[in-house]
Design a protein around this nucleic acid. Structure first.
Lengths: 201, 201
DNA sequence: GTGTTATACTTAACAGTGTTAAGTTAAATG
DNA sequence: CATTTAACTTAACACTGTTAAGTATAACAC
Protein backbone atom coordinates (compact mmCIF):
# COMPACT_ATOMS: atom_id res chain seq x y z
CA UNK A 1 0.00 0.00 0.00
CA UNK A 2 2.94 2.37 -0.56
CA UNK A 3 1.70 3.95 -3.75
CA UNK A 4 -1.13 5.98 -2.28
CA UNK A 5 1.19 7.24 0.39
CA UNK A 6 3.80 8.27 -2.11
CA UNK A 7 1.12 10.14 -4.06
CA UNK A 8 -0.10 11.90 -0.95
CA UNK A 9 3.48 12.81 -0.10
CA UNK A 10 4.01 14.23 -3.57
CA UNK A 11 0.83 16.28 -3.37
CA UNK A 12 1.90 17.68 -0.06
CA UNK A 13 5.29 18.51 -1.51
CA UNK A 14 3.82 20.40 -4.45
CA UNK A 15 1.49 22.27 -2.11
CA UNK A 16 4.47 23.28 -0.04
CA UNK A 17 6.38 24.23 -3.16
CA UNK A 18 3.58 26.55 -4.23
CA UNK A 19 3.45 28.01 -0.74
CA UNK A 20 7.16 28.70 -0.67
CA UNK A 21 7.21 30.25 -4.11
CA UNK A 22 4.25 32.42 -3.21
CA UNK A 23 5.84 33.55 0.05
CA UNK A 24 9.07 34.51 -1.65
CA UNK A 25 7.28 36.50 -4.32
CA UNK A 26 4.82 38.14 -1.92
CA UNK A 27 7.63 39.20 0.38
CA UNK A 28 9.88 40.50 -2.37
CA UNK A 29 7.39 42.10 -4.73
CA UNK A 30 4.25 42.67 -2.70
CA UNK A 31 0.96 40.82 -2.84
CA UNK A 32 -0.63 43.05 -5.48
CA UNK A 33 2.31 42.82 -7.83
CA UNK A 34 2.42 39.04 -7.83
CA UNK A 35 0.18 37.27 -10.31
CA UNK A 36 -0.88 33.66 -10.24
CA UNK A 37 0.93 33.26 -13.54
CA UNK A 38 4.15 34.50 -11.97
CA UNK A 39 3.93 32.02 -9.14
CA UNK A 40 3.11 29.24 -11.59
CA UNK A 41 6.03 30.06 -13.80
CA UNK A 42 8.36 30.06 -10.81
CA UNK A 43 7.45 26.48 -9.96
CA UNK A 44 7.18 25.52 -13.64
CA UNK A 45 3.53 24.50 -13.59
CA UNK A 46 0.54 25.95 -15.39
CA UNK A 47 -1.30 28.69 -13.49
CA UNK A 48 -4.43 26.62 -13.08
CA UNK A 49 -2.60 23.95 -11.14
CA UNK A 50 -2.48 26.31 -8.18
CA UNK A 51 -6.25 26.20 -8.04
CA UNK A 52 -6.12 22.47 -7.39
CA UNK A 53 -4.34 23.25 -4.14
CA UNK A 54 -5.76 26.61 -3.10
CA UNK A 55 -9.22 28.05 -3.51
CA UNK A 56 -8.00 31.38 -4.85
CA UNK A 57 -5.27 33.96 -4.48
CA UNK A 58 -6.58 35.17 -1.12
CA UNK A 59 -6.56 31.62 0.20
CA UNK A 60 -2.98 31.28 -0.91
CA UNK A 61 -2.00 34.42 0.95
CA UNK A 62 -4.04 33.22 3.89
CA UNK A 63 -2.05 30.02 4.05
CA UNK A 64 1.25 31.82 3.73
CA UNK A 65 0.16 34.08 6.54
CA UNK A 66 -0.89 31.28 8.83
CA UNK A 67 2.49 29.66 8.43
CA UNK A 68 4.35 32.79 9.35
CA UNK A 69 2.09 33.55 12.28
CA UNK A 70 2.88 30.13 13.63
CA UNK A 71 6.51 31.10 13.29
CA UNK A 72 5.87 34.23 15.31
CA UNK A 73 4.17 32.25 18.01
CA UNK A 74 7.10 29.84 18.09
CA UNK A 75 9.61 32.66 18.30
CA UNK A 76 7.72 34.25 21.15
CA UNK A 77 7.28 31.07 23.14
CA UNK A 78 10.94 30.20 22.75
CA UNK A 79 11.74 33.62 24.13
CA UNK A 80 9.52 33.15 27.12
CA UNK A 81 11.42 30.06 28.24
CA UNK A 82 14.78 31.81 28.31
CA UNK A 83 13.83 34.84 30.35
CA UNK A 84 12.66 35.05 33.92
CA UNK A 85 12.21 38.77 34.53
CA UNK A 86 8.70 39.51 33.19
CA UNK A 87 9.52 43.06 32.16
CA UNK A 88 12.55 41.90 30.24
CA UNK A 89 10.43 39.19 28.66
CA UNK A 90 7.82 41.75 27.66
CA UNK A 91 10.47 44.02 26.21
CA UNK A 92 12.04 41.26 24.16
CA UNK A 93 8.65 39.97 23.06
CA UNK A 94 7.59 43.39 21.90
CA UNK A 95 10.76 43.71 19.91
CA UNK A 96 10.33 40.25 18.40
CA UNK A 97 6.75 41.13 17.50
CA UNK A 98 7.75 44.28 15.63
CA UNK A 99 10.65 42.57 13.92
CA UNK A 100 8.37 39.83 12.75
CA UNK A 101 6.05 42.42 11.25
CA UNK A 102 8.94 44.05 9.44
CA UNK A 103 10.21 40.75 8.12
CA UNK A 104 6.83 39.68 6.74
CA UNK A 105 5.04 42.96 6.14
CA UNK A 106 2.53 41.47 3.73
CA UNK A 107 1.56 38.77 6.14
CA UNK A 108 1.38 41.19 8.99
CA UNK A 109 -0.83 43.60 7.13
CA UNK A 110 -3.05 40.86 5.83
CA UNK A 111 -3.63 39.45 9.27
CA UNK A 112 -3.96 42.62 11.27
CA UNK A 113 -5.26 45.16 8.78
CA UNK A 114 -6.66 43.74 5.59
CA UNK A 115 -8.37 40.56 6.68
CA UNK A 116 -10.45 42.20 9.42
CA UNK A 117 -11.76 44.61 6.81
CA UNK A 118 -13.19 41.84 4.68
CA UNK A 119 -13.96 39.38 7.43
CA UNK A 120 -16.18 41.47 9.61
CA UNK A 121 -18.06 40.17 12.64
CA UNK A 122 -15.10 38.74 14.49
CA UNK A 123 -12.09 40.54 15.83
CA UNK A 124 -9.74 37.67 16.27
CA UNK A 125 -11.33 34.35 15.51
CA UNK A 126 -11.87 31.82 18.21
CA UNK A 127 -8.84 29.54 18.35
CA UNK A 128 -7.03 31.42 15.57
CA UNK A 129 -3.30 31.88 15.69
CA UNK A 130 -3.83 35.62 16.00
CA UNK A 131 -5.84 35.09 19.15
CA UNK A 132 -3.13 32.90 20.59
CA UNK A 133 -0.60 35.64 20.02
CA UNK A 134 -2.71 38.06 22.00
CA UNK A 135 -3.21 35.47 24.73
CA UNK A 136 0.55 35.27 24.96
CA UNK A 137 0.82 39.03 25.36
CA UNK A 138 -1.90 39.02 28.00
CA UNK A 139 -0.11 36.40 30.05
CA UNK A 140 3.05 38.46 30.06
CA UNK A 141 1.40 41.69 31.05
CA UNK A 142 -0.53 39.84 33.70
CA UNK A 143 2.69 38.69 35.29
CA UNK A 144 4.04 42.24 35.36
CA UNK A 145 0.95 43.41 37.17
CA UNK A 146 0.94 40.45 39.57
CA UNK A 147 4.48 41.22 40.61
CA UNK A 148 3.39 44.83 41.18
CA UNK A 149 5.90 46.14 38.70
CA UNK A 150 3.07 47.66 36.69
CA UNK A 151 0.34 49.89 37.98
CA UNK A 152 -2.73 48.02 39.11
CA UNK A 153 -4.76 48.82 36.02
CA UNK A 154 -6.79 45.93 34.70
CA UNK A 155 -4.92 43.38 32.64
CA UNK A 156 -7.04 43.78 29.52
CA UNK A 157 -6.46 47.51 29.19
CA UNK A 158 -2.76 47.18 29.91
CA UNK A 159 -2.38 44.50 27.28
CA UNK A 160 -4.29 46.54 24.76
CA UNK A 161 -2.08 49.56 25.40
CA UNK A 162 0.99 47.46 24.80
CA UNK A 163 -0.52 46.02 21.66
CA UNK A 164 -1.42 49.51 20.38
CA UNK A 165 2.17 50.64 20.77
CA UNK A 166 3.85 47.77 18.97
CA UNK A 167 1.10 47.59 16.34
CA UNK A 168 1.44 51.29 15.67
CA UNK A 169 5.18 51.41 15.26
CA UNK A 170 5.17 48.25 13.17
CA UNK A 171 2.66 49.61 10.70
CA UNK A 172 4.28 53.02 10.48
CA UNK A 173 7.64 51.46 9.68
CA UNK A 174 6.05 49.18 7.11
CA UNK A 175 3.90 51.78 5.42
CA UNK A 176 6.25 54.75 5.42
CA UNK A 177 9.65 53.23 4.75
CA UNK A 178 10.93 56.52 3.38
CA UNK A 179 9.85 58.71 6.26
CA UNK A 180 12.87 60.21 8.05
CA UNK A 181 12.55 57.92 11.02
CA UNK A 182 14.96 57.88 13.86
CA UNK A 183 17.25 54.92 13.46
CA UNK A 184 14.88 51.97 13.26
CA UNK A 185 16.02 49.95 16.28
CA UNK A 186 16.25 53.03 18.45
CA UNK A 187 12.68 53.93 17.56
CA UNK A 188 11.34 50.47 18.30
CA UNK A 189 13.19 50.33 21.61
CA UNK A 190 12.03 53.78 22.60
CA UNK A 191 8.41 52.95 21.80
CA UNK A 192 8.54 49.79 23.89
CA UNK A 193 10.49 51.35 26.76
CA UNK A 194 8.29 54.42 26.88
CA UNK A 195 5.18 52.30 27.08
CA UNK A 196 6.63 50.06 29.74
CA UNK A 197 7.78 53.07 31.78
CA UNK A 198 4.35 54.59 31.45
CA UNK A 199 2.75 51.43 32.72
CA UNK A 200 5.00 51.18 35.75
CA UNK A 201 3.83 52.20 39.18
CA UNK B 1 -12.04 88.02 -20.62
CA UNK B 2 -14.68 85.99 -18.79
CA UNK B 3 -14.59 82.98 -21.08
CA UNK B 4 -11.25 81.65 -19.98
CA UNK B 5 -12.26 82.01 -16.38
CA UNK B 6 -15.49 80.18 -16.94
CA UNK B 7 -13.57 77.37 -18.63
CA UNK B 8 -11.14 77.16 -15.76
CA UNK B 9 -14.02 77.07 -13.33
CA UNK B 10 -15.66 74.26 -15.25
CA UNK B 11 -12.44 72.26 -15.32
CA UNK B 12 -12.08 72.69 -11.60
CA UNK B 13 -15.65 71.56 -11.13
CA UNK B 14 -15.19 68.40 -13.13
CA UNK B 15 -11.98 67.65 -11.26
CA UNK B 16 -13.84 68.00 -8.00
CA UNK B 17 -16.65 65.83 -9.33
CA UNK B 18 -14.18 63.07 -10.17
CA UNK B 19 -12.59 63.43 -6.75
CA UNK B 20 -15.91 63.17 -4.95
CA UNK B 21 -17.02 60.17 -6.96
CA UNK B 22 -13.70 58.47 -6.35
CA UNK B 23 -13.80 59.13 -2.60
CA UNK B 24 -17.31 57.77 -2.28
CA UNK B 25 -16.45 54.62 -4.20
CA UNK B 26 -13.09 54.11 -2.47
CA UNK B 27 -14.65 54.48 0.95
CA UNK B 28 -17.62 52.24 0.24
CA UNK B 29 -16.08 49.52 -1.89
CA UNK B 30 -12.37 49.68 -1.18
CA UNK B 31 -9.63 51.04 -3.40
CA UNK B 32 -8.82 47.75 -5.10
CA UNK B 33 -12.42 47.02 -5.97
CA UNK B 34 -12.98 50.33 -7.68
CA UNK B 35 -12.02 50.55 -11.34
CA UNK B 36 -11.45 53.66 -13.37
CA UNK B 37 -14.39 52.58 -15.50
CA UNK B 38 -16.63 52.49 -12.44
CA UNK B 39 -15.66 56.01 -11.43
CA UNK B 40 -16.14 57.21 -15.00
CA UNK B 41 -19.55 55.66 -15.27
CA UNK B 42 -20.60 57.28 -12.01
CA UNK B 43 -19.87 60.74 -13.35
CA UNK B 44 -21.06 59.81 -16.86
CA UNK B 45 -17.80 60.42 -18.66
CA UNK B 46 -15.55 58.07 -20.54
CA UNK B 47 -12.84 56.40 -18.45
CA UNK B 48 -10.03 58.15 -20.28
CA UNK B 49 -11.32 61.56 -19.31
CA UNK B 50 -10.09 60.94 -15.79
CA UNK B 51 -6.56 60.78 -17.15
CA UNK B 52 -6.87 64.36 -18.34
CA UNK B 53 -7.22 65.39 -14.71
CA UNK B 54 -5.15 62.81 -12.84
CA UNK B 55 -1.95 61.07 -13.85
CA UNK B 56 -3.15 57.62 -12.88
CA UNK B 57 -5.23 55.76 -10.32
CA UNK B 58 -2.62 56.22 -7.59
CA UNK B 59 -2.58 59.96 -8.22
CA UNK B 60 -6.34 60.00 -7.82
CA UNK B 61 -6.03 58.18 -4.52
CA UNK B 62 -3.33 60.62 -3.55
CA UNK B 63 -5.59 63.58 -4.14
CA UNK B 64 -8.45 62.02 -2.21
CA UNK B 65 -6.08 61.47 0.70
CA UNK B 66 -4.74 65.00 0.57
CA UNK B 67 -8.26 66.28 1.11
CA UNK B 68 -8.63 64.01 4.12
CA UNK B 69 -5.37 65.22 5.62
CA UNK B 70 -6.41 68.83 5.19
CA UNK B 71 -9.51 68.10 7.20
CA UNK B 72 -7.44 66.53 9.96
CA UNK B 73 -5.05 69.45 10.00
CA UNK B 74 -7.95 71.88 10.32
CA UNK B 75 -9.37 69.97 13.25
CA UNK B 76 -6.04 69.96 15.03
CA UNK B 77 -5.16 73.58 14.48
CA UNK B 78 -8.53 74.68 15.77
CA UNK B 79 -7.67 72.85 18.99
CA UNK B 80 -4.25 74.38 19.45
CA UNK B 81 -5.60 77.90 19.76
CA UNK B 82 -7.66 77.10 22.83
CA UNK B 83 -5.02 75.45 25.04
CA UNK B 84 -1.91 76.78 26.72
CA UNK B 85 -0.49 73.89 28.74
CA UNK B 86 1.60 71.88 26.23
CA UNK B 87 0.93 68.52 27.86
CA UNK B 88 -2.76 69.18 27.92
CA UNK B 89 -2.58 70.29 24.29
CA UNK B 90 -0.75 67.11 23.37
CA UNK B 91 -3.28 64.99 25.21
CA UNK B 92 -6.24 66.69 23.54
CA UNK B 93 -4.56 66.57 20.14
CA UNK B 94 -3.90 62.88 20.48
CA UNK B 95 -7.49 62.30 21.40
CA UNK B 96 -8.69 64.43 18.49
CA UNK B 97 -6.43 62.50 16.15
CA UNK B 98 -7.83 59.14 17.21
CA UNK B 99 -11.39 60.41 17.13
CA UNK B 100 -10.88 61.75 13.63
CA UNK B 101 -9.74 58.30 12.60
CA UNK B 102 -12.74 56.66 14.19
CA UNK B 103 -15.16 59.13 12.65
CA UNK B 104 -13.79 58.59 9.14
CA UNK B 105 -12.30 55.12 9.43
CA UNK B 106 -12.22 54.40 5.72
CA UNK B 107 -10.60 57.73 4.97
CA UNK B 108 -8.08 57.18 7.72
CA UNK B 109 -7.13 53.77 6.43
CA UNK B 110 -7.02 55.02 2.90
CA UNK B 111 -4.60 57.75 3.88
CA UNK B 112 -2.38 55.98 6.37
CA UNK B 113 -2.48 52.35 5.29
CA UNK B 114 -3.74 51.85 1.76
CA UNK B 115 -2.15 54.79 0.02
CA UNK B 116 1.40 54.06 1.18
CA UNK B 117 0.96 50.55 -0.13
CA UNK B 118 0.21 51.74 -3.64
CA UNK B 119 2.16 54.97 -3.69
CA UNK B 120 5.58 53.83 -2.64
CA UNK B 121 8.44 56.17 -2.01
CA UNK B 122 6.33 58.66 -0.16
CA UNK B 123 8.14 59.63 2.99
CA UNK B 124 6.31 62.69 3.78
CA UNK B 125 7.06 64.94 0.89
CA UNK B 126 8.42 68.40 1.35
CA UNK B 127 5.54 70.77 1.93
CA UNK B 128 2.93 68.03 1.87
CA UNK B 129 -0.08 68.13 4.13
CA UNK B 130 1.06 64.95 5.84
CA UNK B 131 4.28 66.71 6.71
CA UNK B 132 2.34 69.61 8.15
CA UNK B 133 0.40 67.26 10.38
CA UNK B 134 3.61 65.81 11.68
CA UNK B 135 5.07 69.30 12.05
CA UNK B 136 2.12 70.11 14.23
CA UNK B 137 2.85 67.13 16.44
CA UNK B 138 6.53 67.96 16.53
CA UNK B 139 5.92 71.51 17.67
CA UNK B 140 3.81 70.23 20.52
CA UNK B 141 6.30 67.64 21.65
CA UNK B 142 9.10 70.14 21.30
CA UNK B 143 7.40 72.48 23.72
CA UNK B 144 7.01 69.66 26.26
CA UNK B 145 10.72 68.96 26.05
CA UNK B 146 11.71 72.64 26.18
CA UNK B 147 9.73 73.10 29.37
CA UNK B 148 11.57 70.06 30.75
CA UNK B 149 8.32 68.21 31.32
CA UNK B 150 9.50 65.46 29.01
CA UNK B 151 12.78 63.61 29.17
CA UNK B 152 15.53 65.18 27.05
CA UNK B 153 15.26 62.67 24.25
CA UNK B 154 15.45 64.13 20.77
CA UNK B 155 12.28 65.69 19.45
CA UNK B 156 12.05 63.47 16.38
CA UNK B 157 12.03 60.21 18.29
CA UNK B 158 9.62 61.52 20.87
CA UNK B 159 7.19 62.64 18.22
CA UNK B 160 7.41 59.33 16.43
CA UNK B 161 6.69 57.45 19.65
CA UNK B 162 3.59 59.54 20.17
CA UNK B 163 2.47 58.96 16.60
CA UNK B 164 3.00 55.21 16.96
CA UNK B 165 0.74 55.10 19.98
CA UNK B 166 -2.19 56.98 18.53
CA UNK B 167 -1.84 55.34 15.12
CA UNK B 168 -1.81 51.92 16.74
CA UNK B 169 -4.87 52.35 18.89
CA UNK B 170 -6.78 54.03 16.07
CA UNK B 171 -6.20 51.17 13.67
CA UNK B 172 -6.91 48.47 16.23
CA UNK B 173 -10.23 50.06 17.09
CA UNK B 174 -11.12 50.44 13.44
CA UNK B 175 -10.05 46.99 12.33
CA UNK B 176 -11.25 44.89 15.25
CA UNK B 177 -14.53 46.48 16.21
CA UNK B 178 -15.72 43.26 17.80
CA UNK B 179 -12.64 42.56 19.85
CA UNK B 180 -13.46 42.70 23.57
CA UNK B 181 -11.84 46.08 24.07
CA UNK B 182 -11.88 47.98 27.28
CA UNK B 183 -14.42 50.77 27.01
CA UNK B 184 -13.31 52.77 23.99
CA UNK B 185 -12.65 56.17 25.58
CA UNK B 186 -10.89 54.60 28.51
CA UNK B 187 -8.59 52.73 26.18
CA UNK B 188 -7.76 55.80 24.11
CA UNK B 189 -7.10 57.87 27.22
CA UNK B 190 -4.97 55.17 28.77
CA UNK B 191 -2.88 54.81 25.63
CA UNK B 192 -2.26 58.53 25.45
CA UNK B 193 -1.66 58.96 29.18
CA UNK B 194 0.64 55.96 29.36
CA UNK B 195 2.75 57.28 26.52
CA UNK B 196 2.90 60.76 28.00
CA UNK B 197 3.83 59.35 31.41
CA UNK B 198 6.52 57.25 29.81
CA UNK B 199 7.95 60.28 28.11
CA UNK B 200 8.08 62.34 31.28
CA UNK B 201 11.29 62.87 33.17
C1' DG C 1 -18.82 85.32 -41.51
C1' DT C 2 -15.22 82.09 -42.71
C1' DG C 3 -11.05 79.26 -42.03
C1' DT C 4 -7.85 77.59 -38.57
C1' DT C 5 -6.41 76.09 -34.27
C1' DA C 6 -6.84 74.50 -29.69
C1' DT C 7 -9.59 72.19 -26.23
C1' DA C 8 -12.29 68.53 -24.33
C1' DC C 9 -13.61 64.40 -24.72
C1' DT C 10 -14.29 59.45 -26.82
C1' DT C 11 -13.22 55.06 -29.30
C1' DA C 12 -10.46 51.28 -29.85
C1' DA C 13 -6.89 48.75 -28.51
C1' DC C 14 -2.94 46.56 -25.71
C1' DA C 15 -1.09 43.85 -22.34
C1' DG C 16 -2.11 42.22 -18.29
C1' DT C 17 -5.22 40.16 -14.30
C1' DG C 18 -7.96 36.19 -11.52
C1' DT C 19 -10.58 32.43 -12.55
C1' DT C 20 -13.25 28.54 -14.83
C1' DA C 21 -14.75 24.85 -18.14
C1' DA C 22 -13.24 21.63 -21.06
C1' DG C 23 -9.65 18.76 -22.73
C1' DT C 24 -5.51 15.72 -22.34
C1' DT C 25 -2.43 12.38 -20.67
C1' DA C 26 -0.80 8.97 -17.85
C1' DA C 27 -1.25 6.01 -14.08
C1' DA C 28 -4.10 2.86 -11.00
C1' DT C 29 -7.78 -0.32 -10.81
C1' DG C 30 -10.88 -4.23 -12.04
C1' DC D 1 -6.27 -5.40 -21.59
C1' DA D 2 -10.23 -2.00 -20.78
C1' DT D 3 -11.95 1.44 -17.84
C1' DT D 4 -11.92 4.69 -14.51
C1' DT D 5 -9.57 8.24 -11.93
C1' DA D 6 -6.28 11.65 -10.84
C1' DA D 7 -3.11 15.38 -12.14
C1' DC D 8 -2.28 18.68 -14.97
C1' DT D 9 -2.83 21.91 -19.25
C1' DT D 10 -5.13 24.68 -22.91
C1' DA D 11 -8.20 28.06 -24.16
C1' DA D 12 -11.22 31.27 -22.96
C1' DC D 13 -14.03 34.90 -20.31
C1' DA D 14 -14.70 39.07 -18.24
C1' DC D 15 -12.33 42.14 -16.20
C1' DT D 16 -8.21 45.65 -15.09
C1' DG D 17 -5.12 50.24 -15.84
C1' DT D 18 -3.49 52.80 -19.43
C1' DT D 19 -2.30 54.87 -24.10
C1' DA D 20 -2.59 56.40 -29.05
C1' DA D 21 -5.42 57.98 -32.31
C1' DG D 22 -9.63 60.08 -33.67
C1' DT D 23 -13.69 63.44 -33.35
C1' DA D 24 -16.49 67.17 -32.49
C1' DT D 25 -17.07 71.61 -30.78
C1' DA D 26 -15.89 75.92 -29.17
C1' DA D 27 -12.63 79.97 -29.43
C1' DC D 28 -9.80 82.76 -32.11
C1' DA D 29 -7.72 85.59 -36.08
C1' DC D 30 -8.80 87.82 -40.15
Amino acid sequence: MGIKERKAREKKQLRQQILSAARELFVNEGYENVSMRKIASKIEYSPTTIYLYFKDKADLLDSVCKETLLNLLNTLEQLKRDINDPVEALRKSGKAYVEFGLEYPQDYKLTFVIRPQFQKGLGLQEGSVGEKVFDYLRAMVSECIRQQIFRQVDVETTGQVMWSAVHGVTLLLIDFPDFPWTEKDKLIDTVINTTIEGLKA
